Amino acid sequence: MDDTMTRDGARPWATDGSDLAFRRPVVLTARSRTGVVLKKLLPVISIATFLVILEIIGRLELSSVVPPVTEAVGTFFELLEGGHLEQFTVSLQALGMGFGLALVLGLAVGTLTTVSRTLDYVLEPYINGFMSMPTSALIPVLMLIFGLGQTTRVVVVFLYAFFMIVVNTQAGLRQVDPAHAEMARAFGAKGTTYLRFVTIPTALPLILTGLRLGVSRALKGMINSETIISVTGIGALIIRFGRTFDVSGLYAVILIIIVMAVLLTSLIRIVETKTGRWLA
C-alpha cells in the first residue's frame, strides 16, 4: 500500500476495516504563505507608517502639539530611569489591588447570582445601574469617604472592573445548553467531571473576555482617579505635564499607559489561547 504522507506527517488515507476513506492533504502554496505573512505584518506596517508621519510632522513643526516621536521616546526612557519610579509604583499598586479584588469578587458574585435566582433578583438593579452610569461621577464621593490616599484609587479601580467581570461571568455560565447538561447528567457526569466537561468549556471564553475588558477598564479607572485626585501616580504626571505644556513629557506618559494596556491585555489573550488548547 502507498505510504505517501502529508505535510504534517499523517497519511492522506485511513481505513475503518471495510471501506477506504481519503483525506485531502493540506498544501500551502507560495501565494497563500505570502498572504498569511502579509496579514501578520499589516499591523506592524500600519503602526510604523503612523509613527513616521508623526515624526515628520514633529520635525517640520507643523503642529505645536505633536512632538517628534524620537523625542517622546527619549522622554519615555528618562521617566523610567529618573525619579518617577515611585509614581509608577503607586499606580501599579492601586491597579493590582483593585483589579485583584474585582477578579475574585466578580467571579464569586457572577457565579452566585447564576446559581441563586433570588440573589440575582436582589442584585440585578445594582449591577445594571453601576454598569450604565459613568463610574467617574462617583470619584468625588469616594474622595469624601476615603480621602485622597491610595484607598480611593483602589476602590475606583475595583468599581471600574468589578461589574464587567460579573456580567460576563453570568453570561458565560448561562450559556450552558440545558440539553447538553441533561445528557451529561444522564451519563453520570457530576461534581468536578460535570464542571470540567460541561460548565468550564462553555463559560470560560466569555469569562476570559470579561477579564480582558475588566483589566482595560481597571486601567482607565486608575488614570481617571489619579487625574482627578492629582496627588501622585501616573495621572498626576499627566496633569503636571499638561499644566506646564511639556508636550514630550505628556506623550511619554501616554506611551507608558499604552504599553501597560498592551501588556495586560496580551497576557490575558495568552491565557485565552492556552485554555482554548487545553479545552480542545
Rank of each mutant, 00 (worst) to 15 (best):
L92F: 11
T113M: 10
I139P: 06
T114Y: 02
D120L: 09
L138H: 09
L92C: 08
F99W: 07
G110M: 02
I127P: 00
Y126R: 02
L119T: 03
Y126G: 09
L123S: 04
A137W: 09
V122W: 08
T113E: 02
F130E: 10
S91V: 03
G106W: 01
L101Y: 03
L95I: 08
V109N: 03
L112D: 10
L138Q: 11
P125I: 00
T113F: 03
T111K: 08
L101Q: 03
L112M: 09
M133D: 09
A137Q: 12
D120T: 11
P134Q: 14
F130K: 13
G98I: 02
T113D: 03
V109G: 01
L138D: 13
D120Y: 13
T113L: 04
P134S: 10
F99P: 03
Y121N: 12
L119F: 06
G110I: 02
I139K: 09
V115F: 05
T113R: 04
P134Y: 09
S116D: 11
T118Y: 13
L105I: 10
L138M: 15
P125A: 01
L119I: 10
T114P: 05
Q93I: 15
L92S: 09
V122K: 06
D120I: 06
P140G: 11
D120F: 10
T111N: 10
G110E: 06
G106E: 05
T118C: 14
T118Q: 15
A102H: 01
A108Y: 06
P134H: 08
M133P: 02
A94V: 03
G96V: 04
T114G: 05
T114K: 02
D120V: 10
M131R: 15
D120A: 15
L101R: 02
Y126A: 14
L95G: 01
A137F: 11
L138P: 09
G96H: 05
S116C: 11
M97S: 12
A108L: 14
V109W: 03
A108S: 13
V115K: 03
T118R: 14
S136T: 15
P125F: 00
V104C: 02
L95Q: 04
A102C: 03
T114I: 01
M133K: 07
T114E: 05
P125H: 01
M133H: 08
L103I: 00
V104A: 06
D120H: 13
L92K: 08
Q93H: 05
Q93K: 12
P140I: 08
L103T: 00
L107E: 05
G129K: 09
V122H: 04
L107D: 06
